[in-house]
Simulated scan of single mutants.
Amino acid sequence: MKLIGSKMESDFRDELTRSNDALQDSGSMLRKALEAGGHEPKNAYILHWVPEQCEGLYTVLIGGSYIVKVEVDKCDKSKPPIVERSELKSYLNGLSKMNQVRLAVAQDLACAKT
């Protein structure tokens, strides 16, 4: 998908940059989960976050090349997070246009950081 510099892209860019900044906090539960799963949070961007009462569900782009879905239990901190890796091709299936733009912006940010 080609980026055109729209307001929506700019808003996504700001949001994704903030998500990457949050992942740089060494106390972040999500960062710890990513590192425990062998994924580098330095060049990671949170595409989606679903805050449930006792867990957080995250979809994270890693290095612009693959997706990691993470489930972090907020009620029972002793329970290990569930981390599942998937390829971009399978993630793109059925993805809305807006979320395709969000992904394209995240990939652009990831490529600019390397």
Score class of each variant (00 low, 15 high):
1 M>Y: 13
1 M>L: 15
3 L>K: 14
4 I>S: 07
5 G>F: 08
6 S>G: 08
9 E>A: 05
10 S>W: 09
13 R>C: 03
13 R>D: 05
14 D>M: 10
15 E>C: 00
17 T>H: 04
18 R>K: 15
18 R>Q: 14
20 N>E: 08
20 N>D: 06
21 D>N: 08
21 D>M: 07
22 A>F: 01
24 Q>H: 12
24 Q>T: 06
24 Q>S: 13
25 D>T: 09
25 D>E: 15
26 S>I: 13
27 G>R: 15
27 G>I: 09
29 M>V: 02
30 L>E: 00
30 L>N: 01
33 A>R: 01
35 E>I: 07
38 G>E: 14
38 G>I: 14
40 E>Y: 02
40 E>P: 00
42 K>M: 02
42 K>E: 01
44 A>I: 05
44 A>C: 09
44 A>P: 03
46 I>D: 03
46 I>M: 11
47 L>V: 07
47 L>I: 10
48 H>I: 00
48 H>R: 15
49 W>V: 10
49 W>N: 11
53 Q>N: 08
54 C>S: 11
54 C>K: 04
56 G>Y: 05
57 L>V: 09
59 T>P: 00
59 T>L: 06
60 V>D: 06
61 L>M: 07
62 I>S: 04
63 G>L: 03
63 G>S: 13
64 G>P: 04
64 G>F: 03
67 I>V: 12
70 V>L: 00
71 E>D: 06
72 V>I: 12
75 C>K: 09
76 D>V: 05
76 D>K: 05
79 K>T: 13
79 K>R: 15
79 K>E: 12
79 K>Q: 12
81 P>W: 14
83 V>W: 11
83 V>D: 12
85 R>H: 05
87 E>A: 07
88 L>Q: 03
90 S>P: 00
90 S>T: 15
90 S>Y: 11
91 Y>M: 04
91 Y>V: 01
91 Y>I: 00
93 N>I: 14
97 K>I: 06
97 K>V: 09
98 M>N: 04
103 L>R: 01
103 L>Y: 08
104 A>D: 13
105 V>L: 05
107 Q>H: 02
107 Q>I: 03
107 Q>M: 14
107 Q>W: 00
108 D>H: 12
108 D>W: 03
109 L>R: 10
109 L>D: 10
110 A>Y: 08
113 K>F: 13
113 K>G: 03
114 T>P: 01
